[in-house]
Amino acid sequence: MSDARRIALEELIARVALGDRAAFDALYDLTSAKLYAVCLSLLQDRPEAEDTLQEVYVSVWRSASRYLVNGLSPMTWLITIARNRAIDRLRARGTRQGTTPADEVAAIASTEPSPESAAIRAQERVMLAGCLEQLDPTQAEAVRAVYLEGLTYADLAAREGVAINTLRSWLRRGLLRLKDCVSR
């Protein structure tokens, strides 16, 4: 995402925090297609994705004032809200068990990164795709499936035919490798 786009979105969110409906409309225009795609990817159901999208923007309107303290780039903040809401709904279906969506994380992770750490993060984000390619392909696919389809450790363990603990250790090692790679 270009700096100009990030700054434009940050300005819109700041205005939404002040109750500016025009800014909210503009933010919706710029971001709803991406967030709807995130909801669809996770829920694989259009009516549910639409309901979730509604929850997401209602939440954005109400919590925009907390955005500036969470230290995330604007698209990450929005995508995280969309993903967490969709996962909430996915888990509520009861077909997947056990894990909690990190729904409050976007609001709670209240750190104010220095400008250079924001730049580093932006760079790491770009590097992630390349670093995923350096993982074992099964591991990279698992990370994608967890993030974009909402799979749980139980789902992955069933898919790979191993115990959940074994699966968890394996994925954690992959995640740590990923961290090493993007931090290089």
Binding site: L72, M75, T76, R83, V105, R121, E124, R125, V126, Y147
Partner: peptide, 9 residues
């Protein structure tokens, strides 16, 4: 969260 959000691209 920042890194993973890149996957949504």
């Amino acid at each position: 969260q920042e890194r993973f959000a890149g996957l949504a691209d």
